[in-house]
Design a protein around this nucleic acid. Structure first.
Lengths: 123, 123
DNA sequence: TCGAGTGTACTGTGTATAATAGTACACACA
DNA sequence: TGTGTGTACTATTATACACAGTACACTCGA
């Protein structure tokens, strides 16, 4: 995996993002088991608490499922209904970023090309 | 203007963004004078130091021009050459956000529609 | 020349977040 | 029972943000 750096996001946020990305890419599938908090911490040179924080957030977001004393597993993709709030929040963040990008003189066509490339890169 | 909240960005970052947005929208034009640090602080209910931090960043980014003892003015739009690094950084941030958005199940077409709308909303 | 207004710099203070360290507990399972 | 699991807790360190207050050098009009 290798975290560290990457856009100055907190480590636990980076980890959350990685897991989601691997799910989107099919590397992680529903039912798959994630490394234990301690193993992941050893792999990523992080503190177990930091990994635990990431797992906790992923559980809150219904991405993974936790069984005490057993492990953490990727959930069935319930990417169905009630994430409207999350989508709205993400959209707002995107539009904020877009203000910056527009100021830099990047045309809409370029941004759209980025989007398309990113979406094609997977599945 | 009214800052406070809006995506949990720091106040000074919000202020930086607003100024850029107003430039893009033509509300602020090259040569226009920004409110003094103290006036802006009074308007926005902020500490003068916070406003100063925003102005300082805007000056570093060549957005405004500062004349000691006189005021701060919007620069001639030198949105020409050397912002490649800034564009690259923004693109990376956008792709990071996109990972999240894709996980939420938002199709590319929706994202592209957001982009188009945002670009049309101005000028 | 003087004084008001300008941006800037500096030292603090308080708060919040991130990441670490260390310890302990309840649980699952062979 | 013992090992491994997630979790909870306290404590420490570092950083960023926002504020308060003060001071300085500059511009410019009265």
């Amino acid at each position: 995996m290798q975290l560290r750096d990457e856009s100055s996001l907190p480590y636990y946020e980076q980890l959350v993002l990685r897991v989601k990305q691997q799910i989107v890419q099919g590397i992680l599938q529903p039912g798959d088991r994630l490394p234990s908090v301690r193993d992941m911490a050893r792999q990523e040179q992080l503190n177990p608490n930091t990994v635990s924080k990431a797992y906790k957030q992923l559980e809150t977001q219904q991405v993974i499922m936790t069984i005490r004393g057993k492990g953490t597993y990727v959930r069935d993709t319930t990417t169905s209904g009630n994430n409207t709030a999350q989508i709205t929040a993400s959209k707002r963040r995107l539009l904020t970023l877009l203000t910056e990008i527009r100021y830099l003189g990047v045309p809409a066509s370029d941004v759209i090309a980025w989007i398309k490339t990113a979406y094609e890169e997977e599945d």
